[in-house]
Design a protein around this nucleic acid. Sequence first.
DNA 1: GGAAAAAACTGACTTTATACAGTTATTTTT
DNA 2: AAAAATAACTGTATAAAGTCAGTTTTTTCC
Lengths: 234, 234
Amino acid sequence: MNQIIEPKGISHCSVFDTEQSWYNLLTEDEKLLIDENSVTLVFKKGETVCKRGAFASHIYFLEEGLVKVYLEERNKNLILMLSTKNNLLGLAAIYDGNNKLPYTITTYTNSTVRMIDIQIFRQLLKQNSEFSFHIINLLNEKTAQIYGRFFSLTQKQLHGRLADILLCLANRIFKSNTFELPLSRSDMGDLTGMSTESVIRMMKEFKDDGLIEMHCKSIELIDIARLERISEFG
Amino acid sequence: MNQIIEPKGISHCSVFDTEQSWYNLLTEDEKLLIDENSVTLVFKKGETVCKRGAFASHIYFLEEGLVKVYLEERNKNLILMLSTKNNLLGLAAIYDGNNKLPYTITTYTNSTVRMIDIQIFRQLLKQNSEFSFHIINLLNEKTAQIYGRFFSLTQKQLHGRLADILLCLANRIFKSNTFELPLSRSDMGDLTGMSTESVIRMMKEFKDDGLIEMHCKSIELIDIARLERISEFG
DNA sequence: GGAAAAAACTGACTTTATACAGTTATTTTT
DNA sequence: AAAAATAACTGTATAAAGTCAGTTTTTTCC
């Protein structure tokens, strides 16, 4: 008898966090090339790493810190994803044709970013197919996550979207049910596609319902199971 | 004096349409390998090419036709993109690790699909870096489009989203301001993240305002400039 | 440590969009 | 060509979420 394979719910998470395995796919020569053509910069909390519309000159490897990758237009912001350390950013600009950055990146905490010359990165992609295959996988993982968030933000209402983000923060960023939120309520809004006031109201509602414990920036998820149900049913 | 480079508005288009150039990057041997490990199938209007959650066995090359790529869950649908001919689909499942299809593909018109064995495709990606670099570019283009739609659906209201889609259909799919719509009003809803009733009302409003001419499925865009303004200001 | 600034919060009101319950039109089937 | 089914459309009621205008709390910076 065939087993019915039920697709799991559409993932809604907005964080991307992979290991540094791409570097190990390079030959010694190639590693050297990267080392010689990259610099490591330290950004303070709140600084902008790169700006949408600028010519893409580097691929960014976040060695340490927490950043947001977002679109801004006419005071409407949409956070595409949050990224923690050990993550390649700016890959979307690799395309030769349109080499403008499609998003802005800003830090939430002091962050260390290795800036790799984009031409060198392209060269390596063109010459090392193991490497480029790995990058394809990275891109696909990111895309899958974006799809999930796309679904979440367009098909769920406030409760579901907020539950999604809270679970995501706990599971993927802080790896703990208790955490100190580095994002403002307004950022939470940009992440969930809701107004700042709605974020505040909704979070209060979650608190009153015993789903979370909260005092300003410090948050604890109490009833994970119920949060997951809220996430699932939108 | 430096010129201020103003980033263009965030593109909102939902169609993907590239030339078949990927095939020409392959060697004769590789082309042969593809030919031997692919079959061409004809799907009738409304048929499902592949289903989310199934194991990914093929990469799909749409030789002819029009399809939707979408997510479905609990009677909520979200069309990720429309695709016309000469487009590779199913690339998101290339990742070795999680080889389940992340979306469903269904035809709008009779369509011809070349189904390429995914293992062979992976093999070529791993051995031909010119080819895989090209695929990276394809993926990035798709991602940029998804970002644009993500922004459109989460930051704009009904007018803006409908204007976006109408312009997109005219510019990218039909390449004409007059076209016979193959999507139902309900599909238009899945594409714009609005209810069927809202699609109908909004389209009537556009018609009453002289923006479009419309009789059931046949549509003509009249005042493109104004549609673009509506698109821009959400 | 205190003033200023920024962020968090609150309540009343308004707008936006969906849901529902139908009717009319169009397409498909027999 | 008529019947059945599907899709398009309409009006009303309702819900969801945003806006505005403020107050309170927290953080930042002399």
